[in-house]
């Protein structure tokens, strides 16, 4: 014990030195080897066989330029016709989040209430209810009417007369109207195959469960509409338009591919299911 009191610092430093040295060498060597191989030798050799110069190959390996250092990069810059012009930018989502339902009510009474009702309950069979509909869903359709991505003479005229903020306010107003919340079990039977379609989908046909997008809070695409309590005439009409390809403003054909695979009895069953207020 006594000698360790006298020479502890010198002694321990001597003991330490090789450890410090060799562990630093090991770590530095590993890193250097990894960098030289990964960022230099591999990309340059790969680039040579793919006909790329060394600079491009290294930049690709580092992720500064797109593409693989071992392969040529395809290009395609053709302009195509989009099915919708709506882009859910951060700014637009902020506008929707800050929309003013009170302003929206004034606008809605002027432009929408005649058909869709002041409370969002429509009268005519081919006009959808809007009460409790998701705000982004209403905004998306109005915007598509405005740009012509969804065809409807009357709606196109109305939507073109409104600016973006007005669309967002109207969407917020109807989204805030209460749904009627009936007791669905008393209104319609829910056949097992329809419940299966809603809850489990049909993996054989690649049909996902309806509820995986259309049930509120499911985490599906942001523009997905709420279907509960929607009128069955409108539901069937729109599914058929999707199935035939006459309506095509669903981004990435999300609904067209599903609608085209549903049988008429499934469509009718789903329409009755949602009409009754199931979610």
């Amino acid at each position: 014990m006594s000698d360790s009191h006298e020479t502890p610092s010198i002694d321990r430093r001597l003991l330490d030195q090789p450890w410090r040295f060799w562990s630093t060498v090991a770590v530095a060597g590993t890193l250097l080897g990894g960098i030289i191989l990964g960022a230099l030798i591999i990309p340059v050799v790969q680039g040579r066989s793919a006909g790329l110069d060394a600079y491009t190959a290294i930049c690709r390996a580092l992720g500064i330029l797109p593409g693989s250092p071992a392969q040529p990069q395809p290009s395609d810059r053709v302009q195509r016709t989009p099915v919708s012009q709506v882009v859910w930018t951060s700014e637009l989502l902020h506008i929707l989040a800050r929309a003013d339902p009170a302003r929206g009510r004034t606008k809605a009474l002027e432009s929408c209430a005649a058909c869709h009702g002041e409370t969002g309950i429509a009268v005519a069979p081919d006009v959808p209810h809007l009460a409790g509909q998701s705000g982004p869903a209403i905004y998306k359709q109005l915007s598509d009417y405005r740009t012509g991505s969804r065809a409807h003479d009357l709606m196109a005229g109305i939507a073109r007369a409104l600016d973006e903020t007005a669309l967002a306010d109207i969407a917020a107003y109807y989204a805030g109207r209460p749904m009627r919340n009936p007791n669905p079990a008393t209104l319609a039977p829910a056949p097992a195959e329809i419940i299966t379609l809603v809850e489990l989908g049909d993996p054989r046909r690649g049909i996902p469960p309806c509820a995986s997008c259309h049930r509120a809070g499911s985490g599906g695409p942001i523009e997905t509409p709420v279907l509960a309590e929607q009128r069955d005439e409108y539901f069937i009409q729109q599914i058929n338009l999707y199935a035939s390809g006459q309506r095509r403003n669903d981004l990435y054909a999300r609904m067209r591919t599903i609608a085209a695979q549903l049988t008429p009895s499934e469509i009718a069953g789903l329409a009755a299911y949602y009409r009754a207020g199931f979610r």
Partner: peptide, 10 residues
């Protein structure tokens, strides 16, 4: 990029 992945594989 490939290079950063390679370094971490090492």
């Amino acid at each position: 990029g490939n290079a950063t992945k390679f370094i971490q594989v090492v």
